[in-house]
């Protein structure tokens, strides 16, 4: 029979709590990385199509958002079935509200195509970075990096802005997702 004092018992409990935190974070990363890569692929396609056919850009981005929300829900459902983990159905609902608020901002602000291209990634990544303060620093690093690169693109990249954003935002989300799954 093991005999330990209160200090050793407290240390053992602290070890347990640390491991439980890491397991939870790893499970959040598993789910989020899939959603991130899905959005990355959609956004990358959205920017390329917007560059090639600027007149279709408005419809393209509506389609990207609709497919993105549906995909987020599908990935969540898939993960829930596979792992018996509770996927919070409020997540896609929150995403819908978040998108609605974004569209309202764009409408009230009378944004042009360039402003829209800058606004959406910064809007997404700000919320993403804020979430990272609770769920893991990978979120903060990815979010802040994409915001910084978006602003650099706005200031320094001229007519190639959509292609810059395809690489930075679309590529950044895909690479971020892969980075979260590196283990």
């Amino acid at each position: 029979m093991s005999n330990i004092d209160a200090k050793q018992a407290a240390e053992a409990l602290s070890d347990i709590e640390a491991i439980v935190r890491r397991v939870r974070q790893s499970r959040i990363y598993d789910l989020t990385s899939l959603i991130l890569m899905q959005w990355g692929a959609l956004v990358l396609a959205g920017y390329i199509v917007s560059y090639l056919w600027p007149r279709a850009a408005g419809w393209v981005w509506i389609a990207v958002n609709v497919v993105g929300v549906a995909g987020t829900f599908a990935v969540g459902t898939l993960v829930r079935r596979r792992s018996a983990v509770g996927f919070d159905a409020r997540i896609p609902l929150a995403l819908l509200l978040f998108l609605a608020f974004g569209y309202l901002n764009c409408y009230l602000g009378h944004f042009g195509p360039r402003e829209l291209g800058v606004f959406w990634p910064i809007y997404f990544m700000t919320v993403y970075s804020i979430a990272g303060l609770w769920v893991g620093r990978a979120f903060v690093i990815i979010g802040v990096a994409i915001i910084a690169l978006t602003l650099i693109g706005d200031v320094f990249v001229g007519d190639w802005f959509e292609l810059w954003m395809a690489a930075v935002n679309g590529g950044g989300l895909i690479l971020g997702g892969l980075w979260m799954r590196r283990d």
Binding site: I19, V20, V85
Partner: peptide
């Protein structure tokens, strides 16, 4: 202890 803590943090059967 760490192994059991990690496994116990998962839903039953996983």
């Amino acid at each position: 202890l760490k192994i059991m803590a990690a496994l116990n943090a998962l839903p039953e059967g996983q």
